[in-house]
Structures are given as C-alpha cells and as structure tokens.
C-alpha cells in the first residue's frame, strides 16, 4: 500500500513539473517580451525596461523558471503588476470563495447522484427508471451558468428567498456564507449529479451481471443483499474515476458561475487579470488550478487502492 502511494506520489510530482513547464513557457516565451506585452503598444521604452528588470526578465529563461517555481514552493507567487500586492495574498483571499464552492458542489453532486443512480439501477426497466434516465438526460444538457441564471430569476428575484449574488465574507459567520453559496453550488451540482447518477446506474447494473453476484445468490442472499454486500463496492471503482474528473469540471464551472453571482473568487480574479494583462496572476492561478486537479487525481488513486485490494500489491 505504501509503495503504491509512493509510486503515485512520484508520478504526481512529475506531472506537476511538466505542467509548470508548459504553463511557464506558454505564457512567458511564446508572446515575446512579456513586459511590453503587459504594458500595451503605447508604453514608453524606459517603462518597459523598468518592468523587465522588476520582473527579472533580463535573467536567462531557465533561471527565471527556477525562480518562479522556487518562489511558489516557498509561498511567494510574485507581485501583481496591476494590484501592486503579492499574488499569493490575492489568491488566498479568492480561494476562500472558489474552493468552498467547489467542495460544496461536489458534496451535493454525490449526495444527489448516489441514491438516484442506485434507485434507477434497482428498478431498471421500470417507469421510475425511465423517468430518472429522462431527467438526467435533460440535466446533462443544461449549461450550469444558464441554470444559475434561472435560479436567480426564480429564487432571488421572484421568490426573494436568496440574494441574487455577492458574498458576505467568512468573518461574518459560517451559515450566512453557506447560504450565499447555495444557489451557485446547486447550479453547479445538478448537471454533474445527472452524469454521476447515470454512471452509478450503469456501474451497478454492470456488476449485477458478474459471476460473483450469481455466486452470492446461490449462497442464499436476496437480490437486495447481493447489491449491498457485493455489487456496490465493485461499482464504486468506475464511479470514483468520474468523481475525480468531475472535480476539475466543477472547479472550472465555479470560475464561470462566479460571474452570475458576483462572487469574489478566482474566476473574477483571472478574468480581470486577462483583460489587464496581468500575466503573473494568470500564470499563478492556472498553476494553482492544475495543481488542484492533479492532487485530486492522486487522492482518487489512493481511494482506488482502498476499494480494490488488487491495486495495493502493484507498484
């Protein structure tokens, strides 16, 4: 088990190194001189030169890459050109919105999808199953940001149960913020829950056809006992894969949906940074997003090993 975890950790580190190289070179190398690019066409040469020095652009490329990575490892993400504050502080504040939103949406996704998928699998072929499958088919087709707008229209503008947007801040208490994140989380979760419920259903149905289910039935288990005792844990293996992928979709979705609810999260930060050509911020936020996705993949790999004993031995 430990060896498995170590080998996954090794491959995770490798992915991070390659990802950082890709991000760094795409942003810093391809567009030419970042300083003049950041300042725009009309900037005076002295200003460009000053910014170049400030950004350390007069250094060789590899030194700059090492400095960037070394800085990130020690928590120093550089200084934002437009805000004139450390990027680390900017990100930390915004992460306090985006990360809870993503996790909230992921929890909702799982809480909705598991029972719905199980019920559909247990009643497969029935009218209930057909209804669930039709509903999830619709759920998958709905863009989350549009669904968010409908939620605002209905729950905030018409019923006035929720505010149409904004975020009070964690210093104002826990529940008030959870309430502010509820509509965005529901909007994010519903399409993903539709996908997960379908995966859950087909995974359970697939395992129900396996020989070991017949063995269990021959032992005297009822079909319900066979599902709970034998099918569920095996069905979890493909379901985990999808949950891992969904995290990255939810994270990306959170960035988009912040626009609908005027949430001060990473999404707002990065889109402003793009318009203001604040490349240091773009670079760091993208790296952070990729880091989060790779970390979740690692956690999913560990979860596999917990579910499936066949993986624990393999290095």
């Amino acid at each position: 088990m430990l060896r498995y975890a170590l080998s996954r950790l090794l491959s995770l580190s490798l992915s991070l190194v390659v990802a950082s190289l890709v991000i760094f070179f795409v942003i810093e190398v391809i567009p030419g001189d970042p300083a003049s690019y950041m300042l725009g066409m009309n900037a005076r040469p002295e200003t460009v030169a000053a910014l170049s020095r400030e950004l350390g652009l007069d250094q060789p490329i590899f030194t700059r890459y090492l400095a960037w990575v070394g800085g990130m490892l020690t928590g120093d993400f550089g200084t934002s050109y437009t805000y004139r504050v450390p990027v680390g502080d900017l990100i930390a504040a915004r992460l306090g919105v985006s990360l809870p939103l993503t996790v909230y949406a992921l929890l909702l996704t799982i809480v909705i999808a598991f029972p719905v998928g199980l019920i559909a699998a247990a009643t497969r072929g029935s009218a209930l199953d057909a209804g669930i499958m039709g509903g999830t088919q619709l759920g998958i087709a709905v863009p989350n940001f549009w669904f968010a707008m409908l939620l605002v229209l209905f729950f905030a503008i018409t019923l006035q149960w929720f505010s149409a947007g904004g975020f009070p801040g964690w210093d104002r208490g826990f529940w008030i913020n959870i309430k502010a994140l509820t509509l965005p989380a529901v909007a994010l979760a519903l399409p993903q829950a539709s996908i997960l419920a379908r995966v859950m259903r087909s995974a359970v149905i697939e395992t129900l056809g396996q020989d070991y289910i017949r063995t269990a039935r021959a032992k005297g288990l009822t079909s319900r006992q066979a599902v709970v005792g034998h099918a569920l844990r095996n069905a979890l293996i493909p379901v985990l894969t999808i949950i891992g992928l969904q995290f990255s979709f939810l994270l990306a979705g959170a960035i988009i949906i912040e626009n609908v609810f005027f949430l001060p999260g990473l999404g707002r930060l990065i889109f402003q940074a793009i318009t203001q050509r604040d490349l240091i911020v773009v670079e760091s936020v993208v790296m952070l997003l990729v880091f989060a996705v790779i970390m979740v993949t690692f956690l999913v790999d560990l979860a596999y090993a917990a579910v499936d004993p066949r993986l624990r031995r393999r290095a």
Binding site: D211, Y212, R214, T215, A218, H230, R233, N234
Partner: peptide, 24 residues
Amino acid sequence: MCGVRGNQIGMIFQEPMTALNPVQ
C-alpha cells in the same frame, strides 16, 4: 427460496476466476 439456497442446496460454477468477489 433464499432460505433454501446455500442452506439446503449449495452450488459451484464453472469459472472460478470470476466466481468470487474480488474486493472481499
């Protein structure tokens, strides 16, 4: 019938490689 299976009548199948639950 569930009370009979495994209790009065036991059964084994052809393919032992897939007849057991891999995660138990």
